[in-house]
């Protein structure tokens, strides 16, 4: 680990100014991913600018009925908030499905969104990785790619290929619930849809997000959404707990008395470089009967352009049926709940 300076500015604007001025400076919040990366040699900042206490640690009601989550809110507090549990159950579930009790006490809302891929080759300095070392190649393409992408990845050319996935559970639920992110930069604060925060690897896999260096997430806004109360998060992983998703589904569903789906929100985790908003699946669901056939057709619609990693050392082809199965399980559960409430 290289030495670094440590600073704790007086306010968020000061933190932004400090980091913006130094291309090698980095923000420190909960530290659960950054300190990990310092030890692995993946990050070597000149200065760590501690933003703990500089962004809000409160969850406040928005005028139109939504919630504003301070970027400093710890994952555990976020999940335990009674408004979140009642109005956005998918989000509470997603938060609780992530990491461990200790990590949820540490990790912040902002930091969770900005965590980097858990690709084993990205974390291993002895292997090629275009995300870590541009142009060196993607070791996962022909490697152990169990946790890798099926959607939106870059398979070629070799010098920019990247099939990494975003590891957050929380972000998948937030994407499904159409959250906005508030970002503070040198020129003031702006709000962007969460779907515009993360980016596909394209021809530059080194960049995970659209943020400029020095921009700081200050809050996440959750819009009011009646359908969100009928939402769920289904995470499929290789252990019963404390493991990253192979595939996850955040979904919300509205079904009318006749059993027809009137509204739907779906996002997928573990399948792409971003938390994946499944708009094709949503379109396929709305207006269709709430049946297993519909759910599977919706998954097929979303996976039309899917391209699994076909690796001799363990690829992601299994994720195609797994996405379908997980989506069906999640939506079936929601529809059953919905039917029970209607009764």
């Amino acid at each position: 680990m290289k030495p670094f300076a440590y600073e704790r500015p007086h306010d968020a604007a000061g933190a932004v100014a400090t980091v913006t001025a130094d291309p090698d400076a980095a923000f420190l919040a909960g530290g659960t991913n950054l300190v990990d990366h310092l030890k692995l040699g993946l990050a070597a900042p000149s200065t760590l600018v501690d933003v703990t206490g500089l962004t809000s640690t409160e969850i406040t009601d928005l005028p139109e009925g939504g919630l504003r989550i301070g970027a400093g809110v710890r994952n555990a507090d976020f999940a335990a908030d009674e408004r979140v549990r009642a109005r956005y159950p998918a989000l509470a579930h997603a938060l609780l499905a992530g990491a461990s009790g200790q990590l949820r006490n540490m990790a912040t809302t902002g930091g969770n969104l900005l965590q980097r891929t858990r690709c084993v080759y990205f974390q291993d300095l002895t292997t090629p990785c275009n995300k870590r070392e541009p142009g060196s190649g993607c070791s996962a393409l022909d490697g152990w790619a169990r946790h890798h992408a099926v959607l939106g990845a870059t398979h070629e050319p070799a010098d920019v290929a990247c099939v990494a996935t975003h590891p957050s559970d929380m972000a998948v639920a937030l994407v499904a619930l159409e959250a906005q992110v508030r970002v503070l930069g040198r020129d003031g604060e702006r709000a962007i849809p969460l779907t515009d925060l993360h980016r596909l690897p394209g021809d530059d896999p080194t960049r995970d997000t659209t943020l400029a260096h020095g921009e700081l997430i200050t809050a996440v806004d959750l819009p009011a959404s009646p359908i969100a109360a009928h939402s769920t998060y289904r995470k499929v992983r290789d252990r019963a707990s404390y493991a990253f998703a192979l595939v996850s589904v955040a979904a919300a569903l509205a079904v009318d008395d006749g059993g027809t789906i009137t509204d739907a929100r779906v996002a997928l985790g573990g399948v792409a470089h971003v938390p994946w908003r499944a708009t094709a699946a949503e379109s396929a669901l709305v207006g269709a009967p709430a049946t297993d056939d519909t759910y599977r057709a919706a998954a097929r619609a979303e996976l039309v352009d899917a391209r699994p990693v076909e690796s001799p050392r363990g690829g992601t082809a299994f994720k195609l049926p797994l996405v379908t199965a997980t989506l069906a399980a999640a939506l079936r559960g929601l529809a059953e709940n919905s039917a029970q409430e209607a009764r």
Partner: peptide, 25 residues
């Protein structure tokens, strides 16, 4: 332990990659 033969070492080289049973299992 996933031994990536191209490099000759185990690539899932920590407790996030090499799973052992947790309490919930």
């Amino acid at each position: 332990s996933v031994l990536d033969d191209r490099f000759g070492h185990v690539v899932n080289r920590d407790f996030a990659g090499y799973h052992v049973a947790t309490n919930a299992d």
